[in-house]
């Protein structure tokens, strides 16, 4: 019985750990898409953030500085995406694809310059800390390998991600700013006539999506693992994008979807450790199949913000 509980604890723990980078990035997706701008470049922003986070944490010795710089690194590509999409009315998906090439390319370019030609950073000594670590271990309140330890002895980024979900939810639904963001995403023309600066809101939202995606990348490179490598963020940004849509463009929905993807990873690792490789691939496949099934059966066409992906031109309307 105790073993089973311990196993469950292990699965929950790994689920939370692997869901965290996705949660940050998906939140970024929620913010930008609610303002009406598609950001398929989340992958590139996450990739860049993962590198910046690990590189800064390596050189400065401070994981928090790494996390912050990663967020600003993501914000930079958010700015580029915003300039293209908002100011120059670019095709949003095409610009996002460009950001994916640019984010990944520039991260690896800088990595090779700074880390002696390598497409990975050296190991970060000071990872993001585990704030509740004082509760777990020998002679402490809980054993670190017991259920409580496995579930709650998490990196600070895990707690931060849950906090951010609540914060984004609050801002989006309970503040004036959030209402404006949603209005711009639903009907920019009407928002404009009400005196909302559509351009400014969209710039802010797209840059915030970069901010969160950058953090998501760092949550991978300096918490889940302790270095950046060129294969670390392979498709996670796209999964976060899917989680955001799966979660119906809501922060709380995105959270649940990310937990589902995280759980699949958790089970995959658990079964891998138990030596069941066959089920591993099938299980890893499940959340994607499940997402499709759920999209087909529950999610209709109408949940996306109405003005999503549409180019807004001030002065088109009278």
């Amino acid at each position: 019985m105790e073993l089973i509980i311990q196993d469950i604890g292990f699965i929950i723990g790994t689920t939370l750990m692997y869901a965290t980078p996705l949660i940050f990035t998906a939140l970024g997706g929620v913010i930008t898409e609610r303002s009406g701008v598609v950001n398929i470049g989340l992958e590139g922003m996450m990739f860049f953030g993962a590198f910046v986070g690990a590189a800064v944490a390596y050189f400065s010795g401070s994981p928090w500085l790494g996390l912050l710089c990663a967020a600003f690194g993501g914000t930079f590509w958010g700015l580029i995406h915003a300039i293209a999409c908002v100011s120059f009315r670019a095709e949003q998906i095409v610009s996002g694809i460009a950001i994916n090439f640019l984010g990944a390319g520039s991260a690896l370019f800088i990595s090779r310059l700074v880390f002696d030609g390598a497409t990975q950073t050296l190991t970060v000594v000071n990872k993001i800390p585990q704030p509740l670590a004082f509760l777990f271990g020998e002679g402490k309140m809980f054993s670190s390998s017991g259920f409580m330890g496995l579930v709650f002895n998490q990196f600070a980024t895990v707690y931060l991600a849950f906090f951010m979900v609540a914060l984004v939810w609050f801002v989006l639904y309970k503040t004036r700013l959030g209402m404006r963001v949603r209005a711009v995403g639903e009907n920019p023309e009407a928002a404009n006539t009400l005196g909302i600066d559509v351009i400014k809101i969209r710039y802010g939202a797209v840059m915030m999506s970069g901010f969160f995606a950058g953090m998501g990348g760092a949550a991978m490179s300096i918490a889940v693992v302790s270095r950046f490598s060129n294969t670390l963020i392979s498709g996670h940004g796209f999964i976060a994008l899917a989680a955001m849509i799966f979660g119906k463009w809501k922060p709380q929905g995105a959270l649940l979807a990310c937990l589902l993807f995280g759980a699949a990873k958790g089970f995959e690792i658990y079964l891998g450790a138990k030596g069941v490789p066959v089920a591993g691939d099938v299980l890893a496949m499940l959340p994607y199949v499940l997402t499709l099934v759920i999209l087909v059966s529950f999610v209709g066409k109408t949940t996306a913000p109405a003005a999503i992906g549409k180019i807004y031109e001030k002065g088109d309307h009278i």
Binding site: A98, S111, R112
Partner: peptide, 19 residues
């Protein structure tokens, strides 16, 4: 020079094609 300058070139080309 890092090979990845290629990704930067390609990404920039696409970014301008988008605009």
């Amino acid at each position: 020079a890092p090979t990845e300058v290629i990704s930067i070139v390609v990404g920039t080309i696409i970014l301008f094609i988008a605009m």
